[in-house]
Design a protein around this nucleic acid. Structure first.
Lengths: 156, 156
DNA sequence: AGGCAATAGTTGCATTAACAACTATATTGG
DNA sequence: CCAATATAGTTGTTAATGCAACTATTGCCT
């Protein structure tokens, strides 16, 4: 990969010798979708529902707004993902009597039984990503990614 | 792919107390799409065309298969992205006379003039991601992400 | 030469996701 | 209390993307 790039700004210069960081991030996202999607096939759901399910394992009974806020996913996308989870009997909605605009989302028994399966899928994906790193590097990288996440949050 | 019980369950435990690595990766990908998409609006193209344009700045005249291979993006997606770039006069196709199945993709003068603009968009995004890191950490993180990319490549 | 597998590209279809406009409920300020 | 505003959720539209089926060309093998 020997490329000669013209660098007409100080910023462009940084990009010259190496990859754009967007490339591995895009790749890791897209292939996680494929990997998780395949693993979820036997369960009748898709990769788009996975983050919501994982979030509910941590905090059952929260509403769609909270899910959207936490995952930073559009509330329309959240509405449709939850609908699919309802259709497949992974969660059910319950009107919040304190605020009748919102629904609280609860895991079904079926979903609760599958929690170990779901967490195993997540951790196996992590094991692939980190297969060449030791636990200390793993922590370091995870931490760096979360800081980058915060850096973007600050300006969005 | 290693899916042994001991390995994954020990890591599944780690998943309990902290974030799934997929969360920041997904976020960084989705918000890059939004950020780049907005920056590209004045140019009449979308975030989906950006990686192809960037790749062509490094290696002009390659074919769609090479673009797909390098970016690890489906060839159907590549076909449609290149079509949009053709429609907006950023690139043109030229039949490869040595292999008439393929087209070589070349940057137009318009695209060449905009190379500094495009690289500036890319590097400004990187500056946001890395805003709390020094150059050495930046290199370290970039390198780690590329290794994770390779780790996934190995098994896909 | 003829046939068959591989390669390059296109297109239909499905999923994920953002954005915007909309409904319904809640809250706040006169 | 009512009007204006804010919040929770839904839905239509669009873009990016992967997969699979298809066409066309190439190259290999007997």
């Amino acid at each position: 990969m020997d490329t000669t790039e013209s660098n007409s700004s100080s910023h462009a210069k940084e990009l010259c010798g190496k990859e754009f960081i967007g490339k591995p991030i895009s790749y890791l996202y897209r292939y996680e979708q494929i990997y998780i999607g395949k693993k979820l096939e036997p369960y009748g759901i898709g990769s788009g529902q996975f983050p919501f399910l994982m979030r509910l394992y941590s905090e059952d009974g929260i509403n769609q707004e909270s899910l959207s806020d936490y995952l930073k996913i559009d509330k329309g996308t959240t509405a449709r993902a939850i609908q699919k989870l309802v259709d497949e009997n992974y969660v059910f909605r319950q009107r919040d009597e304190r605020d009748r605009r919102s629904y609280r989302i609860f895991l079904s028994e079926k979903a609760k039984k599958l929690e170990p399966d779901m967490k195993k899928i997540a951790s196996e994906w992590e094991d692939i990503l980190f297969s060449s790193f030791d636990d200390s590097q793993r922590k370091e990288i995870t931490n760096s990614l979360e800081i980058m996440f915060e850096n973007v949050l600050k300006i969005m």
